[in-house]
């Protein structure tokens, strides 16, 4: 047996040592980030950090369906908004804290993902993409007409000044989103090395060949839409606490849908690391542009970067690093 085949026989990711390295590394990174930001002692750092992390989670969630299974969801903003409005509604109705609202958002986002999957997964390619876009428009219309959560005027959220171990509420939100993002990325990474990940890759490459090979394609796609929907809603759940005010225009913003697609593509779809780099890069650029120019430039920046990558590195940054591997 040649060296090459031995390498192929070795289980690819998901070694116990790899898991320890990932979770250990993630924990260290989190601690370093929080420590570093505390030293900076600047409220804006928490604010900008949250902005980037929410996109890390959103892009990772999108990638579970779009990158792993190859089904493009154009309605990421719809799912994110469902998470955001779950929090607004539950807070208003029952006065719930943020954390239980996040859990509820995961459930509702997951159910919505499952429903969309069930309805739309018989559609392929661009038809699926259009169905998801229509779903976002439909949800938008519902929220605009739902006066309990403020309708088109929006709703204010009174957030506590701070929560004990944390210096400020901004820090608290940052840490919450940091933990959520790490969990999301961990889930995506777990899928990649698993039976599920292998089945999704097979159906993404060739759905007919996959089903002939015994892959229960419909079931796997439903798992992917559910997980993806749940995590996208989670990414949006703290949004109202972050901005202090939520209206449909903000929650259903086009930027969310566009970024959710652009970030994995630029970083490298189909790998867990791709959406992370893509999100950090693009969100930082947009945050910088918002401060220096205006947020109106954000979508243009995304467009320009996307065009550059489509031409120069179609498999994203991860693809560039790995060199001319196959896809």
């Amino acid at each position: 047996m040649t060296v090459k085949t031995e390498a192929a026989l070795r289980p690819r990711p998901a070694l116990p040592a790899g898991h320890i390295a990932f979770w250990g590394g993630a924990a260290l990174l989190c601690l370093a980030l929080v420590a570093g930001f505390r030293v900076l002692d600047n409220e804006y750092a928490w604010f900008a950090g949250y902005f980037i992390l929410q996109y890390v989670l959103l892009a990772t969630a999108w990638n579970i369906l779009g990158g792993y299974a190859g089904y493009v969801n154009f309605g990421a903003a719809g799912f994110l908004a469902v998470g955001a409005y779950t929090t607004v509604a539950l807070r208003k109705a029952f006065g719930l804290d943020l954390l239980p609202c996040i859990a509820a958002a995961a459930c509702i986002g997951g159910l919505l993902g499952l429903g969309t999957g069930w309805l739309a997964l018989r559609l392929k390619g661009v038809y699926f993409a259009i169905a998801t876009l229509s779903l976002a428009v439909l949800l938008h219309t519902i929220v605009v007409n739902w006066s309990f959560v403020g309708g088109s005027r929006g709703a204010y959220v009174l957030r506590p000044a701070s929560i004990p171990p944390f210096v400020s509420y901004g820090e608290y939100l940052f840490v919450v989103m940091l933990v959520l993002a790490v969990i999301g990325v961990g889930i995506a990474r777990g899928i990649e090395g698993s039976r599920l990940g292998m089945g999704l890759a097979a159906l993404r490459d060739d759905e007919r060949a996959a089903e002939a090979a015994g892959v229960p394609t419909l079931r796997l796609k439903l798992v992917a839409t559910t997980l993806s929907g749940a995590l996208m809603a989670v990414a949006g759940a703290p949004l109202s606490h972050y901005t202090g005010y939520l209206n449909p225009e903000a929650a259903f913003g086009l930027a969310f849908s566009v970024n959710a697609i652009a970030m994995p593509l630029i970083g490298g779809a189909g790998t867990w690391f791709g959406p992370v780099i893509g999100a950090v890069l693009l969100a930082s650029l947009q945050q910088a542009a918002t401060v220096t120019i205006s947020s109106a430039a954000n979508l243009m920046i995304v467009g320009v970067v996307l065009v550059i990558f489509a031409a120069a590195a179609p498999r994203g940054i991860v693809g560039l690093i790995r060199g001319g591997r196959h896809r």
């Binding site: 085949t5 192929a8 026989l9 690819r12 039976r195 292998m198 089945g199 890759a201 097979a202 993404r204 490459d205 060739d206 007919r208 060949a209 996959a210 002939a212 090979a213 015994g214 892959v215 229960p216 189909g270 196959h326 896809r327």
Partner: peptide
Amino acid sequence: RTFQLPRPFNSLSVLENVTVPLLFG
């Protein structure tokens, strides 16, 4: 069944291609 025009899983290695039916078979 095999396909008249081969339909491999292009993003997977040759070995992984054959692992798929074993994992889900």
